[in-house]
């Protein structure tokens, strides 16, 4: 402290000594502020500079198209006549309610989602539990279950189309070995969507399995040990330790699968072209066909707007439900 006071003196001396130039000293704080401001400005510039790639991409490929789709949904934009667009109000939207194909595509999509979401969730969890055990060839199984995720969905769809072939397909040949008569699969209006569901679950479950696996490994071991001491059975451990421990991850997966399921497009496009009799036409596929095959961009945009609203609603409902459960 003494040192401090002694050093303070020369400072004040120094100040007095510099008294004539006091005004310039007073000017220092504003200068600092300016410096801070310009520094903040610079930082902001740097920040936006780093953000720019993301913002530009988002703007060009997401925000602008969304805005354009919203605008076109009120017009009669026909792809062959890009210079002749006129405003037609809500005509496109009112036709949605009369469009039998839209209704069919909507219910197809709902059916697909309602089945795929829980089944895929269960399969992914099952696979994760299996792989979490210290089995022989664990790495092999993990790779095997995960490999469909790495493959392009288009490739997978084409392969499964071969396997589903009613005459020469692998699956019917296997069924024949156990005495089941050949099934029409993709060529039957009753079986086509279910065939696509099976393939989609197989293709998608590997990814969710990995996320579940991470979740499983995050559950502290001492909880299981405690359960063991309490004499809990394996089933009780699963029910009261594993499941609660996975809850947040399951919710995350639930939402992502739901949204992905609603965007069903590639499988019907490659495997069935939406047939037979429109039984596998999904909403997104119907929108695509309307816009590109039938060139009716205006109506396709209107359906896209409605589709976005539907997905948005589902997401909000899920969020609310989840919040309630957490609360």
């Amino acid at each position: 402290m003494k040192g401090n006071s002694s050093s303070a003196k020369p400072l004040t001396d120094h100040d007095h000594y510099k008294a004539p130039s006091e005004p310039s000293i007073k000017k220092v704080p504003p200068k600092r502020k300016k410096r801070r401001r310009s520094q903040a400005f610079q930082e902001a510039v740097t920040g936006y500079f780093f953000l720019a790639p993301a913002l530009i991409l988002l703007g060009v490929f997401l925000l602008y198209p969304m805005g354009a789709a919203f605008y076109y949904s009120f017009t009669d934009f026909y792809i062959l006549k890009p210079d002749d667009i006129s405003f037609i109000g809500f005509e496109n939207f009112s036709y949605i309610w009369q469009d039998a194909q839209f209704r069919q595509a909507f219910w197809n999509t709902v059916y697909f989602s309602v089945i795929v979401v829980p089944v895929q969730l269960a399969v992914a969890l099952g696979l994760a539990l299996l792989i979490n055990k210290k089995l022989k060839f664990r790495v092999f199984f993990r790779t095997a279950f995960f490999s469909p995720v790495v493959m392009s969905l288009v490739v997978v769809s084409i392969l499964w189309t071969f396997m589903y072939n009613p005459n020469e397909g692998l699956i019917n040949q296997l069924l024949g070995l156990i005495g089941i008569s050949p099934q029409p699969f993709l060529t039957s209006p009753d079986q086509a969507m279910n065939s696509i569901i099976v393939m989609s679950v197989w293709q998608g479950a590997g990814f969710q399995m990995m996320i579940f696996l991470a979740g499983l490994q995050n559950i502290p071991n001492h909880l299981y040990e405690a359960a063991d001491i309490d004499g809990a059975s394996n089933w009780q451990k699963f029910l009261h330790v594993t499941l609660p421990g996975l809850k947040n991850i399951a919710l995350f997966i639930f939402i992502t699968i739901s949204i992905a399921a609603f965007k069903l497009l590639v499988q019907p496009m490659i495997m069935t072209q939406g047939g037979p009799l429109g039984s596998t036409k999904s909403l997104v596929y119907h929108i695509y066909e309307t816009g590109f095959n039938y060139r009716d961009v205006g109506y396709a945009s209107a359906m896209a707007v409605v589709f976005t609203l539907i997905v948005l609603t589902i997401t909000i409902i899920q969020r609310v439900l989840i919040r309630e459960e957490r609360g």
Binding site: S147, V150, M151, S152, V154, V155, V156, I158, L159, F162
Partner: peptide, 20 residues
Amino acid sequence: LLLAGVLVVLMLAACSSDSN
């Protein structure tokens, strides 16, 4: 080895997609 295996599978798959 694993990567090589995946590559082979993908290439085979790509071939069959062509014929389709």
